[in-house]
Amino acid sequence: MTLEVIGISVLWLFLFGYIIIASIDFGAGFFNAYSLYRGKQHILTKIIQRYLSPVWEVTNVFLVFFFVGIVGFFPKTAYFYGTTLLVPVSIAIILLAIRGSYYAFTTYGGLKQKIYVFLYGVSGLFIPASLSIVISISEGGFVTLEQTGPVLDYLKLFTSPLSWSIVVLSLTAVLYISAVFLTWYADHANDIEATELMRKYSLIWAGPCILTATGIIVEMHGHNHEHYTRLIHLWWLFAFSLILFVGTVYLLWKRIRYGLAFGLLTGQFALAFFAYGISHYPYLLYPHLTIYDGFTNEAMATALIFAFLAGLALLIPSLILLLRLFLFNKEYVQGKQSNHP
């Protein structure tokens, strides 16, 4: 395995981590707001609050880790993506900033108005939508190299069926992932009413999620044929992913083993995400930038990998401690311990 491949694999893994835990977070915000609107807030809010409170800051770090890491391992991405992504990423930052800080303001600071709950819920859907634009751009066809530097063609981007299908997939995936997780979490807390509601939401969003995912492959056929061919080549990974999807839905339907259901879901998304990533290889940005010509020097790459291993040795035990105290601790999950400051 070359240093380039190690680098991109590590980053891809962290991006996957971000997608899963951020989806839970974004979706939870949306379901919370929706239940308030439907007058069912009493069912969901406590469960959602109890999960989100100790982990919201950690979610953000996964994203920071990814973008700092990619500029470290592949400095040329700063040039290509930095220049072209100014507007969509700025919008995502602003939404993330308002969402994150107003979460703290309402949770710890006692701002209680309904309007914040709605803003919080809706902003959680706009963020994945604006971040998913990065994926569309990486498919090529939207960036041209002018004399002054790379330029993004907004008209083409906003009229492209591919970019809209990716946006829609990001939304359905957020809602589906979050609903399945919260079903398990609520069940873990022995909260029957919340479990039933979240189970219903999971089953509602399962179909749209898998449909939009399939739709992307179809759109890819027309947009980037080279990538499409490579995707099809990895059909077996997608087939495994589909089997896991069916498993999740079956368990939810039968009302059994919600923990396993969420595990299968993670597997489903991991397989699809990595199949997509592998088929994207070697391009970081079609057709301008590959992981080989965008790579940093050997000395830096080695140093980064060492730092990464040392960092992991510190992080993994800490993360396990966090999960044991708040996710796998029945007393906490069931709300028998509050202990907030």
Partner: peptide, 11 residues
Amino acid sequence: AIFLGIYLYTW
């Protein structure tokens, strides 16, 4: 971030 979350909720 990890330990702040833990510290906050273990008073």
